[in-house]
Amino acid sequence: MGDTNFALGRLDRASTFYVAGHRGLVGSAIWRNLENEGFKNLVGRLSSELDLKDREAVFAFFAETKPRYVVLAAAKVGGILANSKFPVDFLSDNLRIQVNVLDAARVHGVERLLFLGSSCIYPKFAEQPIREDSLLTGHLEPTNDAYAIAKIAGIMQIQAVRRQYGLPWISAMPTNLYGPGDNFSPEGSHVLPALIRRYDDAAKNGSDSVTNWGSGSPRREFLHVDDMAAACLHLMENYDGPSQVNVGTGSDVTIKELASMVADAVGFKGNIEWDANRPDGTPRKLLDVSKLAKAGWSSSIGLEEGIRTTVDWYRANLESIRH
């Protein structure tokens, strides 16, 4: 194992900090949080300025900027439809992004790095709540297995760097995220932004009822992206271990409860109906967050409050958001 003198603790607010994917839902929240925490030298590049799939360009960027800290939040992401139709893209693009950034970060002496994955890395039928040690114990969900395998490879590379070079690099796996900067498009959005758009439209149009897919009985966990950003910095300053860390709230709600919260937040007064002929998906998906709690962090933004502020953001940015 390589020798290092890097001690855990408070990150130097004056050092160069590169946020890969700084315009995405997670990356933009991390950027906001770092600014609020007093970091003075944040670096980000649009994909049009730096293609992370281009190995030569990535190495040149690291040689030029020499970041001391890195959060790797850049990824090719999409919903079930996109993952099912383009598995090669999700596997190849994400592997290249990860390998290029992680290799360049190691060569150019990045002290602390956090790699962001997704809860889809876990087996489809993992015991609930899902613990970190359930990784690689069963079959993946077939609709996004290519993306999941890429993210698992990222975790493995972090662990390999720790073993071979002794660097205190870490991985974090968030649950379902939502908040400012989310994707509200009808085809590409996840359940919470989709509900916000649907109910806001219904409220504006004076609709009598809204019909949602499925029975409303599946349970899901939701974490505000600003909480996720705060957790990332906390882990970089307080956690040093080979295992990925689940980041969530440790509690979940039914989709039916979620729909009611969204209806209240947008002021929709009509009926909420359910089409039970439509698929429900996995009955429950909840992360065990005891490792995160042991590291000294827990979420602070309640779901109802988070939905209200996200609705406000959605309405204020209706002209410019992804839809």
Rank of each mutant, 00 (worst) to 15 (best):
G241I: 10
C232R: 03
E237L: 08
A259L: 12
N246C: 15
N212C: 03
E257C: 08
G248N: 05
M236D: 09
K256S: 10
S243K: 14
G214K: 02
M228K: 08
S209D: 00
E257M: 11
N212M: 01
N246W: 12
S207E: 06
E221S: 10
A203I: 03
I255T: 09
G241V: 11
S207L: 07
T254N: 11
C232E: 04
A263C: 09
V245T: 15
Y239E: 09
G216V: 01
A202N: 03
C232D: 05
E237W: 02
A202R: 04
M228A: 15
K256T: 01
H234G: 13
S207V: 00
N205H: 00
D252F: 11
A231P: 07
M228C: 15
V245L: 13
G241D: 07
G216S: 04
E257H: 10
R219T: 02
S215C: 03
G206W: 00
D227N: 12
S217M: 05
S217L: 07
A202M: 04
D208E: 06
V210G: 02
N205P: 00
P218F: 10
A229N: 06
N212F: 02
L235I: 11
D252Y: 09
V225T: 15
A203E: 02
H234R: 13
A202G: 03
S243E: 14
S251D: 06
A229R: 07
L235N: 12
Y199R: 01
K256Q: 08
G216M: 04
L223T: 14
V253K: 14
A202L: 02
H234P: 06
P218C: 07
N212V: 00
C232I: 14
L233D: 08
R219M: 04
V245M: 15
N238W: 04
R220Q: 02
E221V: 13
S209K: 02
E221C: 13
W213F: 02
K256W: 05
S260F: 09
V225C: 13
S215K: 07
D208L: 06
S207H: 09
A263G: 08
Y199T: 03
V253T: 12
T211I: 00
N246I: 15
G214C: 03
D208R: 09
L223G: 12
G206H: 01
D200W: 05
D208H: 07
D240W: 06
